[in-house]
Design a protein around this nucleic acid. Structure first.
Length: 615
RNA sequence: GCCGACAUAGCUCAGUGGCUAGAGCGGCUGUUUUGUAAACAGCGGGUCGUGGGUUCGAAUCCCUCUGUCGGCUCCA
């Protein structure tokens, strides 16, 4: 898409925000308006209707009113006025939120209003610390403080649809009054809108919470608590296959598995600095024997430093690399929990490398290679975000260290030819990160893996190694996770595959269906089952008293990769014709195999983690 | 944590002040012995999320708590 087209779409969406606000004002003349910016795929406007609450039931009326305004083809006219005059305007029309914005602008210029999208403010000029003139846009009877740009007239706004209404704090601050945010999506053409809505429809079908239920992967229990998923046998197979792959990749680069307890004295986190920063999100554990305060571990790095610190280390020993795929526990706010995306028991495929400064580049190369291979295998395209610090004081360690660390990360990313972008203010408090974003099968991007450079933790724990000149040196730590969190990755992966898992991680790889329930058939099916199990395959048998058609249907519903019907023909020595799940098929023509051939091929596919079948 | 919506059988959902709360699927039993997406019949199954209130009467109206969903805020 050209820049020009982007700008045009932006103007359409922004204009729709005004049209919606205008429509709402027609229907609720007392409305107090907040801000109404353009967001991904559309726009929103924050409104305050006093005591009244908007609901989705009101969308029809609002959309109808918007349609009238659009049909009228009102021109968007821009004009300016001095800030002081604008304050009077806001007062006159009883718009306290606009008044507050204008007051901030007038008092101290753009910086005081930095927390808002600049486009929302009626700034006549950018980057000017003194604001004297502000701009307005008017269409029909509606006037709004706004920098623009807009389309020429209300009938040039493309296709839109109001989607939802939700609470939002005024200016995003928890202490401020809560307004209602009305969201709409908008595109240049009805066709593009249709495509977007279809994508949402498809996303709904793939929702991991729905598939998790249908495919019996995980459950929640009120008695266990929210945000604490329980994994069924099928879900556990899936988790463990993914974790095993992540572990194997890293072991291939010299990482070694370690194991740690899930609780610790809180002293560990006082030393690491986590207590001060995240103390209120830790689960506390009380001992009945000692006076020590314990906590559930919310991360693993401090534990791992203690394995490193337990004996003297030589420069020859480095890198020392630990992997630990283990659960951590974070007392997330209840309102933030949802499905597997945000849970309170989080499995991390965590690793920590303790290295010499001269090993940074090699080490980053290794973990980037792991991540690349993992995401190539699961069929997701990667790009990375270099997450840097900003100028705030939320970060530990000297600024010089940060600058050099950030540079080294960038070099490694460039050397690995990764598609990247840079962003300030996204770093962890102890160091800069490389965050991996993976694109799923329906085009959505998710944050997954992460690689973090850390000069702070080794300092805090006084970690050392002896250099070739006998001096004590400080190692550098690299934190790295391939999936990040198993739970969150599962949410992404279930939706990416729509529950059609490849053979290597499918909870059930083969289903054997008996044609009838005669003793001879059942015995034959059992024999094939045993052969498959001996090859390490995950197989289920359906001997039930149902028609073959029904049993095939069941296997389809469970999205089993291979279904095999066994009866008289196969018992008599005939070759079997496997039914192959259609997304796995490369070659359309059905072929027959001996039982041995078939099972060995599937076992080989599972081992080599192929995404399509070779049958 | 905040704003809003929701919670009825294992699942998906009907039922919005008045007889013993229903359906489909799943489950169980029987008949059938089946060849690549649903055989037929019968039977079980619910303290209507929890606790309280209003009422002659509550799944239905009000409040509390728990949980779920959509957002906000946060995310080592």
């Amino acid at each position: 898409m050209s820049d020009n087209k982007d700008n045009q779409l932006y103007a359409m969406r922004h204009s729709l925000a005004h049209i919606m606000a205008s429509a709402i004002q027609h229907l609720w003349p007392e409305v107090k308006l907040g801000v109404g910016p353009v967001v991904e795929n559309g726009f929103y406007y924050d409104v305050d209707l006093g005591g009244e609450q908007l609901s989705a039931d009101d969308f029809e009326r609002i959309e109808a009113e918007m349609a009238k305004i659009i049909k009228a083809g009102e021109a968007f006219e821009r004009f300016e006025m001095p800030v002081l005059e604008a304050v009077d305007w806001a007062r006159k029309y009883k718009q306290p939120y606009k008044e507050e914005l204008l007051n901030d602008l007038q008092r101290s210029g753009t910086t005081a209003a930095k927390d808002l999208d600049a486009a929302e403010l009626g700034l006549a000029a950018d980057g000017d610390s003194k604001v004297e003139q502000v701009s307005f846009y008017r269409n029909g009877d509606f006037t709004d403080l706004c920098r623009g740009p807009h389309v020429e007239a209300t009938n040039k706004v493309g296709a839109f649809k109001l989607m939802r209404v939700a609470g939002a704090y005024w200016r995003g601050k928890e202490g401020n009054p809560q307004m209602q945010r009305v969201y709409g999506v908008a595109f240049a053409t009805p066709k593009e809108l249709r495509q977007y809505l279809d994508m949402l429809e498809e996303a709904k079908k793939r929702d991991h919470r729905k598939l998790g239920q249908e495919l019996d992967l995980f459950v929640m229990s009120d008695l266990v608590g929210s945000g604490l998923p329980l994994f069924t046998p099928r879900g556990t197979v899936l988790r463990e296959e993914l974790e095993r792959f992540s572990n194997e990749l890293r072991k291939g680069y010299g990482f070694e598995k370690v194991s740690i307890p899930h609780i610790t004295k809180k002293d560990l986190y006082e030393k690491s600095g986590h207590w001060a920063k995240f103390g209120d999100e830790l689960f506390l554990v009380k001992s009945q024997e000692t006076s020590d305060d314990f906590v559930m571990k919310p991360m693993n790095c401090p534990h791992h430093t203690q394995i490193y610190a337990a004996r003297p280390r030589s420069y020859r020993d480095l890198p020392i690399r630990f992997i630990d795929t283990t659960m951590v526990y974070r007392d997330e706010k209840t309102g933030e929990l949802g499905g597997l995306n945000r849970v309170r028991s989080i499995t991390q495929d965590d690793s920590h490398a303790f290295i010499r400064p001269d090993q940074i580049e090699q080490q980053i190369d290794d973990v980037l290679a792991c991540a690349n291979q993992f995401y190539e295998t699961v069929g997701m395209k990667l790009r990375v975000r270099l997450s840097y610090r900003d100028d705030s004081d939320a970060y530990l360690g000297s600024k010089d260290l940060w600058v050099s660390a950030q540079e080294q990360l960038k070099n490694a990313v460039i050397a690995n030819k990764l598609d990247y972008f840079e962003q300030e203010g996204e770093a962890a408090f102890y160091g800069p990160k490389i965050d991996f974003m993976a694109t799923d099968a329906i085009g959505r991007e998710h944050q997954v893996a992460t690689v973090q450079l850390d000069f702070v933790m080794p300092e805090r724990f006084g970690l050392e190694y002896t250099a070739d000149d006998g001096s004590a040196q400080r190692p550098v730590m690299i934190h790295c996770a391939i999936m990040g969190s198993t739970e969150r990755f599962l949410a992404v992966y279930i939706e990416h595959t729509a529950g059609r898992f490849p053979v290597w991680n499918a909870p059930e790889q083969i289903r054997l269906i008996s044609v009838n329930q005669e003793a001879e058939t059942v015995a034959f099916v059992d024999k094939v089952l045993q052969e498959a199990r001996d090859l390490g395959l995950r197989v289920r048998v359906d001997n039930s008293n149902e028609s073959v058609g029904k049993k095939i249907r069941d296997a389809e519903v469970w999205k089993v990769p291979y279904t095999v019907v066994l009866g008289e023909k196969e018992i008599g020595g005939g070759e079997l014709v496997p039914r192959i799940r259609k997304d796995l098929v490369v070659n359309e023509s059905a072929k027959s195999y001996t039982i041995d051939e078939f099972l060995k091929t599937v076992a080989h596919e599972a081992k080599s983690r192929v995404s399509k079948t070779s049958l």
